[in-house]
Design a protein around this nucleic acid. Structure first.
Lengths: 280, 280
DNA sequence: CGGAGAGTTGACTTTCCTCAATCCCGGTGG
DNA sequence: CCACCGGGATTGAGGAAAGTCAACTCTCCG
């Protein structure tokens, strides 16, 4: 199979039941750790933090002393216009390092989208670790590159495409970084972790437009809407074509899969975290 | 003076005369060189290339063997939608290194906007240089950071602001990276090097809208239109306010100034290039 | 049972894109 | 020297996509 389906494991979902619509708020704990290769080294002891959704991690005004490692959950980098309009510039996913630089400019903030488990690391310590570990440095560069990639897509897409095309691309990609349930016929039921407002602000449109397009796609049998947060993807190829990410889908989903695998490797090889006391 | 005015020296402009409207196509030669600190090391001998405007530097389809160093001129990173609509994702300026990675994805290409003087460097050699020079590595990271910064602005701006606000921000920034002529009263006459279509495709709008907004701003006495490529900035503060880049203008123009200074230092300290044979 | 919040739906409105005509300027050739 | 030509820029008229506003539904939860 060319595109291996990957279960993120973030959300426990047995057989799909529409009643399970609160899944957006649940998550399982994972041991924490930075991607430092063999030894799991954390910057701090007892630095683990669980955050509910929609809480500020990095403020838009006060410079932060900390760097964050995302164990589970999704974060958003955002900025507001004077009229209160918000633009989400990128999403951060499990395994990513946030706040090292640049993501805390005046007016730019980072918040949790879903409930999240984070590791807080002192900036000074992180810089030391960075200077001592080639592995970590390489990982950081890879992450910056991935983020630049995503931002290129978003910028192009917001500038040159319409809302429908953007949403299709987003849905296609979502099937690679959101939890889902494979079905017998090869299709999948996708659990959308982002509320409508976040999707709208990421894709630079409105909740009303998102809603209308979703139902239009459902009408066209590209997706099936099980409930507000669960979509069955009937025609992934069509989503990719409509979203005009033909040449980019493979690379982007590969990048996502690799990050996921690196994270899994950490948690599988070291079920407990020997360095920090954030165990389990 | 808080914001030092910097003459780019790219365009020879004595006293301003509206007749000088072909200045867009002219540029002066500079010695080439990579920002490697003391010794100027180039990857290749005789690798200097002069390009007219609107020529492809990095193709969207065939992977490139080369990395480019911009001595003079402006380049654009762009991508087309299926309907032919183009989005310019970023501009590259003198002193920047282009094509090392990521800027040559499927469908993404780099072209000259103005006539440009480039240094072509073999990718293999560049990687060697990179592994041997901390200075170069640091410079490359700084550049990536600047590009990420600009892209954050563009994405936010296209997503959350209207065309008028985007154009104001662009004009304000332009006064920091385009040639200009200071006037007796402290205002400046800006030489716009980009044709309307490029401005429009960068700001995700149309030439008609750009034109209308320019004349609206002129009507409001924020700028004065000398001719199609020369604007006198009457009220920079207002441009910054309208463009909502209050908190970012200083940092972004500082970054531009620093790059410019580093490039100047290279050319001033080493008026001839001792390593490569591209001399002056 | 009632209230809050998210999502959906419909009617209206506005912005800005599209299309087309015109202008302006520089270059060229008679 | 002047008339013509071509490309970029400007201006105007009209229309469509998507944003705004408001009403309504649904589910969850106290």
């Amino acid at each position: 199979m060319e595109h291996q389906l990957i279960d993120m494991g973030q959300v426990a979902e047995p057989d799909f039941t529409p009643a399970d619509s609160t899944s957006r708020m649940k998550h399982a704990g994972l041991p924490c750790g930075l991607p430092l290769g063999k030894p799991l080294v954390c910057g701090d002891a007892r630095h683990r933090e669980d955050r509910p959704s929609d809480t500020e991690v990095i403020s838009g005004s006060s410079p932060s002393h900390d760097v964050w490692f995302i164990r589970t959950g999704i974060l958003r980098l955002q900025r507001y216009a004077h009229d209160g309009r918000r633009q989400i510039l990128t999403l951060f996913l499990p395994g990513e390092i946030v706040g090292f630089e640049a993501e805390f400019r005046e007016g730019i903030s980072v918040e949790t989208v879903t409930q999240s488990a984070l590791c807080r690391i002192d900036r000074r310590k992180f810089e030391t670790m960075l200077s001592q570990s080639d592995t970590l440095r390489a990982e950081l560069i890879r992450q910056k590159q991935d983020q630049l990639d995503r931002l290129h897509w978003l910028t192009w897409s917001v500038g040159a495409l319409g809302p429908e095309e953007r949403l299709c691309a987003f849905l296609a990609l979502s099937s690679k970084f959101m939890p889902f349930q494979p079905l017998h016929d090869g299709t999948v039921v996708l659990s959308m972790l982002l509320p409508r407002k976040d999707i709208a602000d990421l894709l630079a449109t409105t909740v009303e437009t998102i809603s209308r397009i979703l139902h239009r796609l459902s009408e066209a049998s590209v997706i099936e809407i099980k409930d507000a947060t669960h979509f069955r993807v009937l025609d992934l190829k069509e989503l990719i074509a409509l979203g005009q990410i033909d040449g980019h889908f493979d690379r982007m989903s590969r990048a996502l899969a690799e990050r996921r695998n690196r994270l899994d490797a950490l948690t599988v090889l070291r079920p407990d975290c020997p360095v920090c006391f954030c165990g389990r």
